[in-house]
Nucleic acid binder design. Structure first.
Lengths: 233, 233
DNA sequence: CGCTTTTTTGAATCTGATCAAGACAGGTGG
DNA sequence: CCACCTGTCTTGATCAGATTCAAAAAAGCG
């Protein structure tokens, strides 16, 4: 579908300032590399250096390998998202395609060096990072203090917020990730995730269709199941 | 010990650029408010707006209230750290003093507005946020995929890195937080934390003295107990 | 329609939570 | 300086929620 210049322009629109001189624009462009990834494929990148990634199309998961056969999904990202892959330290990170997708990746340090005097760009990057931090903190709370049902409810609400489609008061979701992915994101097993989804369905809070279709039928009930603070506290 | 101008200067040194005109410097200064907090006291701030906090002295914990009697410590902060308190959303956040401390707090939005054209400042803030995000991601991995012993080992190594004192090849720690704090940070109970520390001691990996003293006697062993990737993988 | 893969469901097991004492640290006042 | 007292920490026994192991059911593909 897309070619590199088009993908880069969309990245530029969101992160680079509009009034950036062509010369500078080109320098940024020369840092970016586009990768077309089919579903389930892993992004190949230089893991000795932190990378900045723009999702031009599709959806991805950012996975940390805690040890053999223990992976933790750190975050999901969808079209238009910008995120960073940390360089390898105590863990090794990888980016995997949930659906066919197109990614622009560039070394974070070099982008930062180029942007060192561009307040507009830094401002966008800061905003992006702050949003990521906020999501990560909420995830921390879920993993640290919530039960299995609560985590699944939190997950569904968060996904509805990001990729849900509202129609006639009911929000529906087409989840691009498998039960395994959900489990690895929530620190649970696939069996537990499956059981909790069944419980929510039996409770009438959601309806499912096929593997990936979910309709949120009772938002208030879900928020309660998610263990969120009572509204207007 | 400190007065406001001195505390602010230290903040300025770290975050604001050196070449900032006095006029601008004063505008930032007028946003900041200093609070002297004794141990166990909670910072009073306007929770409808995200805040930026600088730790001029002492140590703090950033706590999220998941629901009554279920608190999750999101992060610990020590002298010189800058961090942000999110505005209240699904959870309410608070900052509590681990030791007597002095904090500078300012509304994040206003700081950002003032810094909108100051690339140096934005750059520092971005760096700070990136470090916070990195720590938060590591915490996510620990909470999602690690056992009780592993979490405690990860915690001790991370603390050693931040506030440990090396002396003759052995790193020792004087923990400013209680077992309860550790538990609330690791998503465990105090009993479990206590048991795991005892196990590490019995295994000869650490030695303890009093409530707060810990000596890391076997770094390699601790790294193994923490379930970190094998070096040079 | 048949095959493979993913998901769901069930039963047994295990890790960490809960409940309940007891030990210890460290501060207070005699 | 020591005895006492309070709150924190440790240890032990039991319990519960989630994992593991195992198998059946459903989804989606060719």
């Amino acid at each position: 579908m897309t070619n590199f210049p088009e993908a880069f322009d969309r990245f530029a629109l969101q992160i680079l300032s509009a009034d950036l001189p062509d010369e500078a624009h080109r320098r940024f462009q020369s840092l970016a590399r586009m990768t077309v990834l089919e579903k389930d494929r892993v992004l190949d990148f230089d893991y000795t250096r932190a990378q900045l990634v723009f999702v031009a199309r599709g959806a991805t998961k950012l996975v940390a390998h805690a040890s053999e056969s223990r992976d933790q999904i750190v975050a999901f990202h969808f079209v238009g998202d910008v995120f960073s892959i940390p360089e390898r330290d105590n863990y090794s990170y990888s980016v995997c395609a949930l659906t066919d997708c197109e990614l622009l990746s560039m070394p974070a340090a070099e982008v930062l060096a180029l942007a060192a005097n561009e307040a507009r760009i830094l401002s966008h990057l800061l905003h992006n990072t702050t949003v990521s931090l906020q999501r990560c903190r909420e995830k921390t709370i879920a993993l640290g203090r919530k039960t299995a049902v609560e985590r699944v409810a939190v997950f569904l609400l968060a996904m509805a917020d990001r990729i849900g489609v509202e129609q006639g008061g009911v929000t529906s979701l087409d989840l691009p990730m498998s039960r395994r992915d959900i489990a690895e994101s929530l620190g649970l097993t696939i069996e537990t995730v499956s059981r909790q989804i069944s419980l929510l369905r039996e409770g009438g809070l959601i309806a499912t269709s096929g593997r990936s279709g979910i309709a949120l039928r009772d938002m208030a009930g879900l928020r309660a199941s998610a263990g969120y603070l009572h509204e207007a506290a």
